[in-house]
Design a protein around this nucleic acid. Structure first.
Lengths: 341, 341
DNA sequence: TTGAAAGCGTTACCAG
DNA sequence: CTGGTAACGCTTTCAA
C-alpha cells in the first residue's frame, strides 16, 4: 500500500499539484471559507479526493522545502516532575490550537543532556523551543538563538541573555507571600531550605524570603540552608534536628521535592505540623491534602504559564519581538500554618 | 549565517557528497572504528571538516529521502500521570542509546486525541510508536499498523489485534498478589474499587482479585465497585460508607488515582487504616510513605517496561517479528495491611 | 484562478 | 574505495 502523495491527489482530481498544495495549506477563516486563491468548487473537489484517497501530508518534505516544520520543542528540566507534567498538557493544547505539533525532550537537570536535546531538535527543524534551562545551559540557549530558532525560557530565567522570550513566575513575590503568611501568624523564627542548583527561580524565592524578613525587622533571624538536589533527605534531617534545638518555628520550602522531603523527615522524627514546626510548601501535590495536617502551599498558574509560553513563542516565530511575562503566584492555605496564638 | 550542508563539507574536504554521507552515517564499532567502506584517512578528514564547519545533519532531508527518521513516538494515555512520567524517562534513555530521538504526545484518555496524535506522528514519518491505548483506540492502532508503522502496546492490551508488539504487566498476578496478601492476613471480606474505563489492565487486575478470592473459597464475598475516571471522589465516599456498614475489612485499589481518592475519603470520614479498613494500593507515589500509615502497594517495574518497549519496537523497525512481553509486578509492604490478629 | 518547473539536503543506486 | 546523479514529496516562484 503505497503512500498517497500530493501528486496522486492532483491526478485524481484533475488539477495541478500546485492547486492541491494551495488547498491543503489553506486555513479556514471565520466564515469557514478557505483563504486561498482557488476556485471554491475546485477546492472542494480537491478536499474530497484527498479525503477519499486518505492523503496525509509528508511533513519531512514540506519542512525540507519550506524550512518550517510547524513543530515546537518543549524541554523541561525533568519531565517526570509534576509541575512540568501539568504544564506540558497546557502547552500541548494551546500549540495544537495554533496548528503546531509538540515534541518533548527532557534535560534531567543536566547541561549535557540539554545541549544534545537542543542539537537534536534543531536538526529536526523545529520552529521554536520552550525550555526550562538547567544551570550551565546558557551556551545551549545561545546556540539555538544564534541558529535563528526562537527560544522561550519557562519557569527559570537566565539573566543577561538577549533576544529570547520569557514566561516566569514572580518568584520573589512567592517567597514574600509564603514568608509573610508565617510572619503574620506571629512567628519570628522562620527559616528556609533550598537547593544549590543555582537557578533563578530559587534565588528569587530566596530574595522574597529575605525581603519579607527584612520588612519586619527580623533579618537577624533569616537563615537559608542549602542541600543538593536528589540527595536532600539526610541533609534535611540534620537541618531539622538542629532547627528544633534552636527553637526555629517555621520553614519555607521553595520546591515540591523539598516539601515532600521535609514532610517525610517530620514524620520520621515524630514531629508535628504546625505544633512543632509550621511549614509552607510549593507547587501542587496530592500530598498536601493527604498529609496528617493539610499543608499550606504556593501554587503556580500552570495553565497561564503554559499558554503564555506558547503564545510568546509563536509570536517570535512569526517575526514579532521577544516578550517577557511575569505571572503572579497563588497561595492555598492549609493546616500547617494554623498556629494557635 | 547559512546552514552548512553535506555539500559544503564535501567541497571543503575535497571529496564527493557520497563519501560524506557514508562517513556521517557510519556507526563506530567497539574498536572505535568506523564501519563503512571509506579510507580511514579520508574519513578522519571528513569528520574534521564537518566539525570545523559546524555541520548538522538535516533530518527532514534524510527522512524524506530514506523514509526513516530515527524518531519514535510515545503516546501515553496521560503524560502527567506519575507512572508514565517515570517510564518516559526510561524510554528516552534507552531510545537515545539506540540512536533514536523520542517524540511525546498525550492522548488524555480520549480516543479522538489518540487518533489525531497517531495521524500527526505518522505524518512526521516516525519509525515506530509506543502507545498506551485508550478505550476505543483500536482503529487508530490498526491504522498505524496498516501504514506499516510498527506499534508497541505498553501497559494496556488490546485483544485480538495482530502484528503489534506488547509490553505488559502481569496484571492478573498483580491482582492475585494484592488480594492474596490481604487474605493471608486472615481477612475474608475483601472488595475492590475499579474504573469503568474498559481497559485490559483493569480487567486483568480484577480477574486476579476474583481468582484469589475463589482460591480461598471466598468468592461469595467478592465484590467490585465501579466508578468513573475523573470524578470518583463522591462515588468512592458512598462505597466506603456502605462498606463500613457491611463490615468490609479491606479494599484492593488497582490504580494510583483510586488509591489517592480512597486515602482522601478515609481521612475525610475519620477512618483509619488498617484499624477500620486495610488497603492495598497501586503504583508508586510519595503519598504511600507520607500518609499517616504507610500504604502497602503493588509496583510496576518501570525501568524494564520502558526499556523492553523500546527494544521490542526497534526490533520491529529492523524487520524482526513483533514480540509480547509480560513482566512481573512487585509488592511493597506497608502499615495499611498490618493487621493485629 | 491555474499550472510548469525549480529546487530544499539527503540517501540510494550504479559506475568507475 | 570513490564519485556522479537521480530521486524523495513538497512549496514556491513565475508565467499563463
Amino acid at each position: 500500500m503505497k503512500r498517497i502523495t500530493i501528486r496522486d491527489v492532483a491526478r485524481e482530481a484533475g488539477v495541478s499539484v500546485t492547486l492541491v498544495s494551495f488547498v491543503m495549506n489553506a486555513k479556514r477563516d471565520k466564515d469557514g471559507k478557505l483563504d486561498c486563491p482557488v476556485n471554491e468548487q475546485t477546492a472542494k473537489r480537491v478536499l474530497e479526493v484527498a479525503e477519499r484517497l486518505g492523503y496525509k501530508r509528508n511533513f519531512a518534505a514540506a519542512s525540507l522545502r519550506s524550512g518550517r516544520s510547524n513543530t515546537i520543542a518543549v524541554i523541561p528540566n525533568d519531565i517526570s516532575n509534576k509541575f512540568f507534567a501539568g504544564i506540558s498538557r497546557c502547552i500541548e493544547d494551546m500549540a495544537h490550537k495554533r496548528g503546531y505539533t509538540v515534541f518533548f525532550a527532557s534535560s534531567e537537570e543536566s547541561a549535557d543532556r540539554l545541549s544534545s536535546a537542543i542539537d537534536a531538535v534543531i536538526a529536526h527543524n523545529v520552529d521554536g523551543i520552550i525550555v526550562a534551562p538547567v544551570t550551565g545551559g546558557e551556551d545551549s540557549i545561545t546556540r539555538a538563538r544564534d541558529a535563528k530558532v526562537p527560544v522561550v525560557l519557562l519557569d527559570r530565567d537566565i539573566e543577561g541573555i538577549q533576544g529570547v522570550g520569557k514566561v516566569l513566575l514572580d518568584d520573589e513575590a512567592a517567597g514574600q507571600m509564603a514568608t509573610g503568611l508565617l510572619l503574620d501568624k506571629g512567628l519570628t523564627k522562620v527559616e528556609m531550605i533550598s537547593y544549590t542548583l543555582g537557578i533563578s527561580s530559587l534565588s528569587e524565592r530566596e530574595a522574597g524570603y529575605r525581603k519579607a524578613m527584612m520588612d519586619r525587622d527580623l533579618y537577624n533571624n533569616a537563615r537559608v540552608h542549602y542541600t543538593t538536589y536528589g540527595k536532600a533527605e539526610a541533609d534535611v534531617e540534620n537541618v531539622i534536628r538542629d532547627a528544633m534545638d534552636r527553637g526555629v518555628q517555621a520553614f519555607f520550602l521553595p520546591t515540591y521535592s523539598l516539601s515532600a522531603t521535609v514532610l517525610s523527615v517530620l514524620r520520621k522524627l515524630g514531629l508535628r505540623t504546625p505544633e512543632d514546626l509550621a511549614i509552607v510548601g510549593f507547587d501542587e501535590s496530592d500530598i498536601y491534602s493527604l498529609y496528617s495536617t493539610t499543608v499550606t502551599h504556593i501554587v503556580q498558574p500552570l495553565k497561564e504559564l503554559g499558554e503564555k509560553s506558547v503564545e510568546v513563542l509563536i509570536n517570535m516565530i512569526e517575526g514579532k519581538p521577544a516578550e517577557s511575562i511575569i505571572l503572579k503566584p497563588g497561595l492555598i492555605p492549609g493546616g500547617s500554618t494554623e498556629i494557635k496564638k
